[in-house]
């Protein structure tokens, strides 16, 4: 066995996994704050990437201007979805809310195809493109810088949740909504905040993903793998999302190289089935599902 090659494949996988982890954080954020399983996360990510594409390639803004604008756009989209569609559904059957997010995803994909057609596009480059070597192992520069940026952003958000006032409000709402209300936390505002932040994170990972593998409506499929990641990690566990993201990214990459690309998703979904059968609350999720 060629260990160097294995290490290179693993590094590429962990790089891709960092994006799963980043998007999974957006998912967990929404789930913790509003108890909504957001199946439209892949579509929000795709819209973020297309916003960057429109600003960076269409209006030819430079990347340091286009990226913040795309992030703000993604955040606004998240808040808009929450205010317009999710909040009226509060208190409804979770299955209905889940279906609403599927509908939203469908609307977003359709809109993107209507505006930019379904042809794949490539994003303007914004990352250094010299080859990176760790020891002897080669990593594609986009993957490396994607990993670094994702790691920094994740660290930043973890600090925000820990120390920022809004982050504390988020955690308070997640742990007990009623108590949070009673303590004077503006819960509806927290809902908007959670969706806004999640939209922003999703747009960010969309831009990173687009830089690695191009932009197309197919990107929305990324959301399904993220769904697997959060289920494996535990729906309400940030740490679980991080670990499961890296694990699944690594697994897909190794399986894709050694068994063939068509096995990537198969292995992911078989893992999902196994986790659901053996440990439905995930690796680190809180165990609140009643026994059947």
């Amino acid at each position: 066995m060629d260990w160097l090659f294995f290490i290179e494949v693993s590094l590429a996988g962990i790089g891709a996994g960092s994006l799963y982890a980043l998007t999974a954080i957006a998912f967990v954020l929404i789930y913790k704050a509003t108890r909504v399983i957001n199946l439209a996360i892949g579509e929000m990510l795709m819209v973020g990437a297309y916003l960057f594409f429109a600003l960076g390639a269409g209006w030819s803004l430079s990347w340091w201007l286009a990226i913040p604008m795309a992030l703000v756009g993604g955040g606004l989209l998240g808040m808009l979805l929450e205010r317009g569609v999710i909040r009226p559904m509060l208190g409804e059957n979770p299955i209905s809310v889940f279906m609403v997010t599927i509908g939203l995803g469908s609307i977003l994909v359709g809109t993107v195809e209507l505006i930019w057609t379904s042809a794949p596009r490539s994003l303007p480059g914004f990352m250094p493109d010299e080859a990176i070597f760790i020891g002897e192992a080669f990593i594609a520069p986009n993957t490396f810088w994607g990993f670094v940026i994702a790691a920094v952003v994740i660290a930043l958000f973890l600090l925000l949740f820990r120390f920022w006032r809004g982050g504390v409000a988020l955690r308070a709402t997640a742990s007990d909504q009623g108590a949070a209300w009673a303590m004077g936390i503006n819960v509806p505002a927290v809902y908007s905040l959670a969706w806004g932040l999640a939209g922003m994170i999703a747009a960010g990972s969309g831009i990173l993903l687009g830089a690695m593998s191009g932009v197309s409506p197919e990107m929305a499929m990324f959301g399904l793998t993220v769904l697997v990641v959060v289920i494996v990690g535990g729906l309400d566990s940030v740490f679980g999302a991080l670990l499961a993201g890296l694990l699944i990214g690594w697994m897909e990459s190794v399986v894709g190289v050694y068994l063939g690309g068509e096995y990537e998703h198969l292995v992911t979904f078989i893992l999902l089935m196994l986790v659901l059968l053996v440990r439905p609350w995930g690796l680190f999720g809180s165990h609140e599902i009643e026994r059947l």
Binding site: V85, V100, S106, V109
Partner: peptide, 20 residues
């Protein structure tokens, strides 16, 4: 080229609209 995306949008809008 417009038909397929419009279908996707209407499809999602129907789900959201009826549920709401």
């Amino acid at each position: 080229a417009v038909l397929s995306p419009v279908r996707t949008i209407v499809f999602g809008a129907l789900i959201v609209g009826f549920l709401l």
